[in-house]
Amino acid sequence: MSSSATTREHLLEVGLKQLRSTGYTATGVKEVLDLAKVPKGSFYHYFPSKEVFAGELLARYGEQEIQRAQRILGDTSIAPLKRLRAYFDELISVYGNKAEISGCLIGGLSLEVADHSPKLQVQLQSTYTAWQDAIAEVLRQAVKAGDLSPSVKPDALAEFVLNSYEGALVRMKAEQSGRPLKNFLHFIFGVLLKP
């Protein structure tokens, strides 16, 4: 790997961690450069603006989450609703209140920049759509397996599940408590999706 690719990669790694920790507004270019121990000119050599940098970080985060979803939700050796529960259990262990960095970057950026950055708003919308589609596919499989009623509308239900999860994460941060996520799991898997 060339030095140029290494510097760019390092900036993205440091930037993603910082963006997740402090959010878009509080993450300054200078702060990322200081943490990465990279000169200012290097940043602008790779990224023409903070918005472009954040877009690349969001794409990287989204790709990591697509891989997680494929690994867990795509394991057809496990019943669909069990896969979905395992998926959210893992998400909560990674992003819940006991995680090193709690909260979801997609949700955080949605709250912070979607109204102000059309470019990032489109990227956030696309990320949510892909995420919702992955959940809807598992719900379709659950209907086909007879674990959910044939009257279930998988796309609408997937949107509700995803919105409930993101809302629970926001409330978790506001209350500094795992209770909203416990309630999410109970009502989604113990009531709504109970076979």
Rank of each mutant, 00 (worst) to 15 (best):
F47T: 02
A134V: 00
S42K: 15
E63H: 09
V32F: 15
L124Y: 03
P39V: 08
K119E: 11
L139W: 00
E63G: 13
K37C: 08
T127N: 12
I135P: 01
A145P: 00
A59R: 09
L35D: 10
A69C: 08
C104M: 06
L111G: 12
V138F: 00
L139V: 01
P80H: 00
L124H: 01
I72W: 06
K119M: 15
N97F: 10
K40F: 05
Q70H: 11
Y87A: 04
K40H: 11
V143M: 01
Q64G: 15
L109E: 03
G96S: 10
G41Y: 04
L33F: 08
K82W: 03
F47A: 02
E56G: 13
F43Q: 07
V94D: 08
T76Q: 02
H116K: 12
R71V: 07
Q125K: 10
A69G: 10
L105G: 02
V138Q: 00
E51H: 11
I106N: 06
I66A: 15
Y128C: 08
S49D: 08
T129K: 15
E56I: 06
G108H: 08
V113Q: 04
A114M: 06
R140I: 00
D75E: 12
T129W: 05
L124C: 09
L35R: 14
I66T: 13
Y128V: 09
Q125R: 11
L73T: 02
I92H: 07
G108E: 07
Y46T: 03
G96A: 12
I106E: 03
R71W: 06
R68G: 03
S49T: 15
C104Q: 05
G108V: 03
C104K: 05
L139Q: 02
L73I: 08
K37I: 11
S42G: 11
A142W: 00
V113C: 04
F88I: 05
G41C: 05
Q123K: 12
A69L: 11
P118A: 09
V143H: 00
A99H: 11
L91N: 10
S110D: 10
L33M: 14
A36D: 05
A136P: 04
G103P: 07
V113P: 01
V113M: 02
A54C: 13
L73E: 04
E100S: 11
G55R: 08
L109Q: 06
Y61R: 15
H45V: 08
I66P: 01
A36E: 05
L84P: 01
L57A: 04
R140G: 05
A134T: 03
A54R: 07
Q67E: 13
A142F: 00
Y61T: 07
